[in-house]
Amino acid sequence: MGDLRVRARGLQKSFGDNHVLHGIDLDVAAGTTSVLIGPSGSGKTTILRSLNVLERPDSGTIRIDDVEVDFATLPDKGGSARQQIAALRAQSGMVFQAHNLFPHKTVIQNVIEGPVQVQKRPLEQAVDEAKALLDQVGLSDKADQYPFQLSGGQQQRVGIARALALKPRVMLFDEPTSALDPELVGEVLSVIKELAAEGWTTVLVTHEIRFAEHVADQVLFLDEGVVVERGPSAQVIGDPREERTQQFLKRILDPA
């Protein structure tokens, strides 16, 4: 798979008595797109949030580039734990189901917030880069507008620009179109497709199976916290080997 950008091993996660992840392994090569599919509650979003340490795995290791955290030995709290989590989190940019923009800030203020406040980059540089990113996602004319003045699809594209502004090593998309009206889905998917074509490393959770089939270098089908099947999209979606995968895809693609 070429140079690995993301390597996760043995990820375990429980919420109380609910054991959500059962020893998940994940490899993502640099410049590729990996798509996680599966029924609701299968653990897809928990994997994504674990990579960004929005959810802290109970055990297992995650490495993004040269930053690795072993969650089995990570202290529960303290300076060392915070530093390790911050270092790993800084490697990725997260795009959520809901755009989560600051409503009182303009579009460009939303995009520069992370680079200026978190990464301490010079304001002028951050603004120039933000303008370029807004142009990239087709929103150069919306820089001075507020989120309430934008459609849902436009707000989500601002969310993508905001994540890109942090210059992450990997982009994480958590069902980025699930909260959108159907007619707005395409404009967000087209941006993700362009990022994949440009060589961004991405991990995407989505129910848009046909989109996944076209954009993914590898697809992982999850069910009940385990990876049931993984491989190229042509195999996992086009010709799945596992019965559970076949059943899921039939229900999604041929509901009648």
Rank of each mutant, 00 (worst) to 15 (best):
R244N: 09
E175D: 02
R169W: 03
G41K: 09
K13R: 01
V226L: 05
V203N: 00
R82D: 05
S140L: 10
L21R: 01
Q136L: 14
L51P: 03
L36K: 07
D181Y: 08
Q91M: 14
G159D: 05
H104Q: 14
A165K: 10
G60W: 00
S50G: 09
G186I: 03
T32C: 12
F15Y: 15
R251K: 15
A30T: 14
A196F: 09
N52A: 15
P176F: 08
Q235E: 15
R230A: 14
A197R: 14
L172V: 02
R169F: 04
R169N: 14
P147A: 13
A81Y: 09
F221K: 00
V137Q: 03
Q155P: 09
H207V: 12
R56W: 07
R251L: 13
A165R: 07
R162H: 08
R169M: 07
T46L: 09
L4P: 13
G41W: 05
Q117D: 06
V219R: 02
W200I: 04
E242W: 00
A179S: 09
P39Y: 11
G93P: 01
V137S: 02
S151F: 01
D76H: 15
G10H: 03
T201Y: 12
E113H: 02
K193M: 08
A161M: 07
A130Q: 03
D141F: 08
L21Y: 04
Q125M: 05
S92K: 08
V6Y: 13
A165F: 12
L54S: 08
D65V: 11
Q83P: 01
K193R: 15
R157A: 02
A72G: 15
V20W: 06
R82Y: 06
Y146D: 00
D135I: 02
A29E: 15
S178A: 04
